[in-house]
């Protein structure tokens, strides 16, 4: 390793990937991927489409069953049984590319439903909490709105609040700005930066290189289901070692 001290180094990682393998038929989406996420880190997964980064993210909370290897969360291996997976999932927040807000609920109830359904909290208390989270993402005036009436950026901010409502120990973002109009990307990235500044542990699959560079603490570059290289942003973006990393940046028009 270089002189760069990784955040949380020496403490127990929140997430450890050990030789994770995922296949779709004859296609290998993840080819023995190993790595880790430390507490307080913002880890950005970058790389070409189809390189496996989103797949790894979905394996992290067992939404995607994988074929080999292990994923450890807080030192404990992810359970294989669906009925036990939910106890792990509720400790991780997830934000999806297409928001996936519940269209039949108001913004407020979208945020509150997890606490009511999963934690068994009383509706009034859950809504109170939801209100403060909507305020946090700057949407206090939208609590009675249904998702269909909100812009993409607003929907994604509600989705972030919904994930935060479960008091997660880590937040997983799956290309959170890829489905957004350019003018609303900034408002979502700002909320994410605010979370990072508060010390939230985050794993972010993204094509937003500026965000990865400025907010990320650790960058992992994927290609063809493998980790090409990883390191702190200054190293990856300014002095990439691998040709494939350089190729990826040049495809993006990112002067490496």
């Amino acid at each position: 390793m270089t002189a760069y001290a990784r955040i949380g180094a020496g403490t127990q990682p929140v997430i450890v990937y050990h030789e994770v393998v995922k296949r779709y038929g004859s296609f290998t989406a993840l080819d023995r991927v190993s790595g880790q996420v430390n507490r307080g880190e913002v880890v950005c997964l970058i790389g070409p489409s189809g390189s496996g980064k989103s797949t790894l993210l979905r394996c992290t909370n067992a939404l995607e069953p994988f074929d080999g290897g292990r994923v450890l969360f807080d030192g404990v291996e992810l359970p294989r049984a669906e009925s036990e997976a939910r106890h792990v999932r509720r400790r991780m927040g997830m934000v999806f590319q297409n928001f996936e807000l519940f269209p039949h609920m108001t913004a407020l109830d979208n945020v509150a439903v997890g606490r009511v359904t999963v934690l068994g909290e009383a509706k009034a208390a859950a809504r109170k909490r939801a209100r403060s989270l909507l305020a946090k993402v700057g949407l206090s005036d939208k609590e009675a709105s249904y998702p269909a009436t909100l812009s993409g950026g607003q929907q994604q901010r509600v989705a972030i609040a919904r994930a935060l409502a479960m008091d997660p120990e880590v937040m997983l973002f799956d290309e959170p700005t890829s489905a957004l109009d350019p003018e609303t990307i900034g408002e979502v990235l700002n909320v994410m930066k605010q979370l990072a500044d508060e010390g939230m542990t985050m794993v972010v699959v993204t094509h937003e290189m500026t965000f990865a560079r400025r907010v990320g603490n650790w960058i992992i570059v994927f290609d063809h289901g493998r980790i090409v290289e990883e390191g702190p942003p200054a190293q990856i973006f300014d002095r990439p070692r691998e040709q494939r990393t350089k190729d990826f940046f040049s495809h993006l028009g990112w002067g490496g």
Partner: peptide, 12 residues
């Protein structure tokens, strides 16, 4: 995706 969003919150 709706299914996954519910599961991700920890719902059964």
């Amino acid at each position: 995706g709706q299914h996954n969003a519910g599961l991700a919150l920890g719902m059964s």
